[in-house]
C-alpha cells in the first residue's frame, strides 16, 4: 500500500530528533566541557576561548551519530610554527587522556576516542587547533590557520589551511527547509552506512536550494535535492566551495568514481521510490530506538496547574549551566 510520503518523512524527522537522546548527548557535552577546561587551564593566555564546531553546532545533526568538534584558537605568538602547535596539543591531550582514550593525529585535528563506557557508548571528539592569521585579529576576523597533518595525500604539499570556522557555522543558519533535507540525507547516510562527509551533504543541499528553485512539500524538496545531486555531482567543473575558505573545493574530496557512485545511488533511490513509495522506508527509516511517549505525542497545549488562580512566582534562587 502506498504511504503518504510527506507525512512519513515528517515522522522520520520526529523520531530522529535530538531531544530523545539527551543522555548520550549529555555525555558528549560533559566530556567536551572537561576537555575545553583542561585546554584553557593548560594554555591559559596562549589561546582564545575554545569553541564548538561540528554538525551539532551547525544544527543539522541527527541523533544516530554525533560529530562534535572543538576548535582551539591559538594566538599568533603562541608557537612559531603550526606543526609545533599541533604536536604540542597532541602531546598534552595524549598525556591527559591517554589512559582512558585513544588519542590520534588526524588530518587537521586530534581525535580523542574514549573507550566504551558501561552503557557501551563510545564517545569521540575532535580537537582542531588553529592559529590566528593576523596578530590580535582573531576576535575581529575569525581567521585561523590550521596545520595539515602530512600523511594525508589529498592536501599533500600544503602544510596549512586557512579557514574561517565561524563562517562555516553561520552558513547554515536559518535555512529551515535546507536543515530538514540535510537531516534526512544524514539519516540516509547513517542508516545505510554511507560514508559521505556530512559537510559535503550540507554544502550540496544548500547549493541545490540556491541553484534550483526547490519547493513543495518535504518529500518534493527531498526528491528535487536528490535529483540535483544525481544530475550535477559528476559534472566537470562542479564545485562546492567551503564557506570557511572559498579556495577549498569540497567536491574535490571525492574521487571521480565516488561521484559516479553517489550519482547512481541517488538515481537508484529515486527510481525505487517512484516504483513504490514504501521503499522510502528502506532509505529513510524511522529511528528504531525512539520510544513513543504518550505525553509528548499528545496534541495537548501548554498546561496550567489545577487550582492555580493567581500569578506565578518563580523559584527564589536558580542556577543554570
Amino acid at each position: 500500500m502506498a504511504i503518504n510520503k510527506k507525512e512519513y518523512l515528517q515522522e522520520v524527522l520526529e523520531t530522529h530528533k535530538m531531544s530523545h537522546v539527551n543522555s548520550l548527548l549529555d555525555k558528549y557535552r560533559d566530556k567536551r566541557k572537561s576537555i575545553k577546561e583542561a585546554l584553557e587551564e593548560h594554555y591559559t593566555d596562549k589561546i582564545y576561548s575554545p569553541l564548538n564546531s561540528g554538525s551539532y553546532a551547525k544544527h543539522t545533526a541527527i541523533n544516530t551519530k554525533f560529530d562534535l568538534d572543538v576548535v582551539v584558537p591559538f594566538k599568533k605568538k603562541s608557537f612559531s610554527t603550526l606543526e609545533e602547535m599541533f604536536d604540542d596539543v597532541f602531546d598534552f591531550l595524549n598525556e591527559t587522556y591517554g589512559t582512558e582514550a585513544t588519542v590520534r593525529k588526524q588530518k587537521v585535528s586530534i581525535g580523542i576516542i574514549f573507550y566504551s563506557d558501561n552503557d557501551g557508548d563510545e564517545i569521540s571528539i575532535d580537537i582542531v587547533p588553529g592559529r590566528e592569521l593576523n596578530e590580535d585579529q582573531y576576535n575581529e576576523d575569525n581567521k585561523l590557520n590550521l596545520y595539515v597533518h602530512s600523511q594525508y595525500g589529498l592536501l599533500a604539499g600544503k602544510t596549512h589551511l586557512l579557514t574561517n570556522i565561524k563562517a562555516q557555522i553561520e552558513h547554515i543558519k536559518s535555512r529551515d527547509n535546507e536543515r530538514k533535507i540535510i537531516r534526512l540525507l544524514k539519516i540516509w547516510k547513517s542508516s545505510n552506512n554511507e560514508d559521505y562527509k556530512s559537510f559535503l551533504m550540507e554544502l550540496i543541499t544548500i547549493k541545490a536550494f540556491d541553484k534550483d528553485s526547490i519547493s513543495g512539500d518535504l518529500c518534493e524538496m527531498l526528491e528535487s535535492t536528490m535529483e540535483y545531486i544525481r544530475d550535477n555531482i559528476t559534472k566537470d567543473g562542479f564545485t562546492l566551495s567551503d564557506p570557511g575558505n572559498s579556495g577549498n573545493n569540497v567536491a574535490d574530496t571525492l574521487e571521480s568514481w565516488q561521484k559516479e557512485n553517489l550519482s547512481s545511488k541517488m538515481k537508484n533511490m529515486l527510481d525505487r521510490i517512484e516504483d513504490n513509495s514504501d521503499n522510502l522506508k528502506i532509505y529513510f527509516p524511522i529511528n528504531p530506538d525512539f520510544k513513543e511517549n504518550e505525553d509528548t505525542k499528545s496534541s495537548e497545549g501548554y498546561g496550567v496547574k489545577t487550582g492555580a488562580s493567581t500569578f506565578s512566582i518563580p523559584t527564589q534562587n536558580q542556577r543554570f549551566g
Binding site: 535530538m18 539527551n22 548527548l25 549529555d26 557535552r29 560533559d30 576561548s49 575554545p50 569553541l51 564548538n52 551539532y56 553546532a57 501548554y302 498546561g303 496550567v304 496547574k305 492555580a308 488562580s309 493567581t310 500569578f311 506565578s312 512566582i313 518563580p314 523559584t315 536558580q318 542556577r319 543554570f320 549551566g321
Partner: peptide
C-alpha cells in the same frame, strides 16, 4: 561561545521550576 544545547544543570533547574508550588504552569 557555546551551542544552544541545554546542560543537565539547565534541565534540573527547569524540573525544580515546574515542580515549585508557587509556579502555576506545567510547561
Amino acid at each position: 561561545d557555546n551551542s544552544t544545547q541545554f546542560s543537565i544543570t539547565d534541565l534540573n533547574a527547569m524540573i525544580e521550576i515546574a515542580e515549585c508550588k508557587t509556579v502555576g504552569i506545567n510547561n
